[in-house]
């Protein structure tokens, strides 16, 4: 689970071609978190089935209590109005440099799959019948 607070992508500085990845993420629609200021409860906090997204009691910033407890259900990612959250698989299982970013529309989702070489593949998935 990673919340994007700066303009840069995950693991900045870890890889030589990080800048290309950053550009790909921005192109795929990654935005930055504003802690859902103005809402009673941030969207990602409201929806997480494991109560893992939380508002920090001191700083007021939204964070994930425990990455290891995350089920990768993408509920927070889809709920985020600013597309500021990325599910990041633990390195134990997967290399870091890929991302999956959903843009949620009324009756469908456009998923952008950012691959390690910066290529972006998109998928259009219907979620509801026309309404």
């Amino acid at each position: 689970m990673r919340i994007n607070r700066e303009k840069r992508g995950p693991g900045c500085g870890e890889f030589a071609d990080e800048a290309a990845m950053d550009r790909a993420l921005v192109e795929a629609g990654l935005g930055t978190c504003n802690d859902c200021r103005g809402l009673d409860e941030p969207r990602c906090v409201e929806v997480c089935p494991g109560d893992l997204m939380a508002v920090h009691p001191e700083t007021g910033a939204v964070y994930c209590r425990s990455d290891a407890d995350c089920w990768d259900c993408f509920a927070c990612v889809k709920a985020c109005p600013r597309r500021a959250i990325l599910v990041r698989l633990p390195y134990e299982l997967a290399d870091y440099r890929a991302a999956l970013i959903p843009r949620v529309h009324k009756n469908s989702i456009t998923w952008s799959l950012v691959k390690p070489d910066g290529e972006i593949e998109t998928f259009e998935v219907v979620t509801r019948k026309e309404r």
Partner: peptide, 23 residues
């Protein structure tokens, strides 16, 4: 294979990410 990944996006998106990350 692309249809397979699309089908997983309806239910279990992390496998699509996992496959991409591990090429």
């Amino acid at each position: 294979a692309r249809n397979l990944r699309a089908a997983y996006l309806d239910m279990y998106p992390n496998i699509v990410l996992y496959w991409a990350a591990n090429k």
